[in-house]
Write a protein that binds this DNA or RNA. Structure first.
Lengths: 141, 141
DNA sequence: TCAACTGGTTGTATCTTACAACTTTTTGAT
DNA sequence: ATCAAAAAGTTGTAAGATACAACCAGTTGA
């Protein structure tokens, strides 16, 4: 991929992030037929933050609530997540991953891990750590 | 956003990249109505690499060629890119951005720049440089 | 010369998404 | 306590993005 040398670091960051964004979706979609990109990212987020609500996913991913509603409904229909009444027994429904969901997630992780490790194979642990730190900082909030 | 402390750096990277991938798409789509995410990324790539062919975009973004074909056709229909016969006058059609395309790109860049700068406002130049370097390395090839 | 390859298009089905209108529950002010 | 407003979520609808398969058009090389 040839590239104009822009001397414009933020624009470089933007372009690299864009390439990445396109690829992860393409790759993720093909990786596991049972768990396409969107379903996977939500399921894995629920696993990382058990008890979160749909509206949290709306904010995290900046999606419309209708989109999240359908995605979560689909995950529930397939027995991968569980919706329960919140602490006050009321409306905010809290989400958690079912054992079946956890298993599917683990399987997908195994597959993705090969790809990820192959990309990071010659990185030092310090570099991976720095990369993770910068990404977290970029994502902010 | 709470998070399990996994001690699993590659998985952290994966999750952060996923959040990013979701957001850039959501944000980009809303940023400029004339130039949604996909159209924008392709147009900006053609601008960065004038004379590239559709098949180059297929490889870069790991998309199906039919998808790229339709996207490029749409960009051409809207007068934003120009398709010409290649050096040998033959089949591989080379792409370049038209003046109208460049103008739209510049306008979108101004808008995106605000968002990007606001995220990087308290980063040192060294950090931005390191981030760009790590992203380039991650995207590899 | 013709088979195989590369680049590209079109038909079709599916997935993702936004927006708008709606229901239900919770909360707050009077 | 009551009722309006906010929050959480659902459903209808339309548009966009994508993959896969089948196809067409030039190019290349045996």
């Amino acid at each position: 991929m040839s590239r104009d040398t822009t001397e414009d670091l933020p624009a470089d960051v933007q372009r690299e992030l864009t390439v990445f964004a396109r690829r992860i979706r393409a790759q993720s979609g093909r990786l596991h037929p049972e768990l396409p990109f969107v379903a996977h990212s939500m399921l894995s987020q629920i696993a990382a933050d058990p008890g979160c609500r749909s509206v949290d996913l709306v904010h995290l991913y900046r999606l419309d609530k209708s989109t999240v509603s359908r995605q979560v409904a689909d995950l529930e229909r397939r027995g991968l997540v569980d919706r329960a009444a919140g602490p006050e027994g009321g409306r905010p429904q809290v989400l958690q991953v079912t054992p079946a969901g956890a298993e599917l997630l683990a399987e997908a992780a195994r597959l993705q891990r090969e790809e990820l490790d192959s990309r990071l194979v010659d990185w030092s642990e310090a570099e991976v750590g720095e990369f993770a730190r910068l990404l977290r900082r970029y994502n902010g909030d």
